[in-house]
Design a protein around this nucleic acid. Structure first.
Lengths: 239, 239
DNA sequence: TCAAAAGTGTTGCTAATACACCCATGC
DNA sequence: GCATGGGTGTATTAGCAACACTTTTGA
């Protein structure tokens, strides 16, 4: 930040990469795009793109999110910065520093191919391997980050539509963490946290499920979870 | 990452900013440098600098750390990436994207001024306000990140010399979190976590303290803390 | 002998896990 | 009826906060 000269250093390109996560049929999915050109032509990759001259990485990520998903209003969706990736060889063409974001979507719209006519597709998280560049690592980091945030923040509601049941909320945790949770205990912990969820006044849901209609909730005003929702229903904790 | 043209976009400068944290006399301190030139000439700032063409942000951060502290061997020190900062106006000169790191130092050496002859100084965390650029925010984010990592990882030993007492380790937590902890309970939790600390075979310490000599420990092989060391001796965090 | 810091023991409360059980709906 | 998912109740248990107490040093 001192002794600088605008032209003394090779210019860097700065991009954003997005791990757009959602739940489809109770399983974690990620939005992938098929690359149309070299390098890695034909391979799947995380969506992303260059920063425009007058936008921040967050703004670029939100713009890309709208472009890739085709969603009209993308302003309320949660974007979580994961970290920056800056290894010199990560893009064979030039020096690219990438800021990765995790985006959380409640309803999974069918993706429309981006402006560059490459295909876009929701892919189960487990099958999203062999991605272009270092996107395998970025995706794993994004999932780990989101999983950690679920423990201590109210982030889980970002995966849910405006009104949701506690069963749906529980599925968020189970899908991202990959562990089953005890329903009665989950319910108590969520309801015991003030401001996490609020019951919607006169609602109960019916049509979808085969069982008893579930009560509907909305996201509450809280952002932090005190105490945290621990990840361990079955884990080796002998001590 | 698609449809790119090396010259289609304004070039970005990429820098690293370092929040170098240490404990002096039981209080959290941060390394600041006085800026010698505009903008913000005469103001204090976090140390940092540009990425060289063939180094990653982590490598640049470690190099800067060595340059600013004057430490000969900087390879074992802990560097924690905080996040990237990319708002268009954050540097008035040009578009600068900065990757922030928190560095944790056990022994606080007197800093030597950097190559650019500006002054460098350890500053108590509370007095490190009014910094140049957006460094107030970066520093706060770095401290929050380190505090959160103390809960769930064995990071605290990075603040300690190779051999340390449990009292010193406790001071790390108390200084970063800003809360006093109960010594007996802290001791039990640390020792109950396998691999967090290991007693050094035949050691006890004497000269420094006025009380009973404390046993010496070293960092163990564990990196994660299960269960986490909770931050709350008596705390009610309402939303 | 006192102060200061390390270390041990104990107690009592809180909270969470692991269930059993009831409810309401679709088929 | 019965399968399925929602929701409530509860007992045992484990963990932990709080505090009393002992130990070992320097002054």
């Amino acid at each position: 930040m001192r002794g600088y000269d605008k032209h003394a250093y090779e210019p860097f390109a700065v991009t954003v990469d997005l791990a757009v996560l959602t739940l489809r049929a109770g399983a974690l999915h990620v939005l992938l795009v098929e690359r149309g050109q070299e390098p890695y032509a034909g391979r799947w990759a995380l969506p992303g793109g260059f920063l425009l001259p007058e936008e921040s990485a967050e703004e670029a990520a939100r713009r890309e999110l709208g472009e890739e998903t085709g969603l009209a209003d993308v302003s309320g969706l949660h974007l979580e910065q994961v970290r920056a990736y800056s290894e010199p060889g990560r893009d064979p063409r030039m020096r690219v520093v990438s800021v990765a974001f995790a985006a959380l979507l409640p309803d999974p719209p069918e993706p429309r191919p981006g402006t560059d006519a490459a295909e876009a597709r929701w892919t189960p998280y487990e099958r999203a391997t062999g991605l272009a560049f270092d996107h395998d690592r970025i995706l794993a980091n994004a999932r780990a980050r989101v999983g950690a945030r679920l423990e201590s923040t109210c982030l889980a509601t970002a995966f849910c539509p405006p009104e949701f049941t506690l069963g749906e909320l529980q599925q968020v945790y189970e899908s991202v963490w990959g562990t089953p949770l005890d329903r009665p205990n989950f319910r108590r912990k969520v309801l015991a946290t003030p401001g996490f969820v609020e019951p919607v006044p006169g609602g109960a849901r019916l049509t979808g499920g085969r069982g008893k209609p579930a009560a509907l909730y909305r996201a509450g005003p809280a952002t932090a979870l005190h105490p945290p929702l621990p990840r361990t229903p079955r884990e080796g904790h002998p001590a």
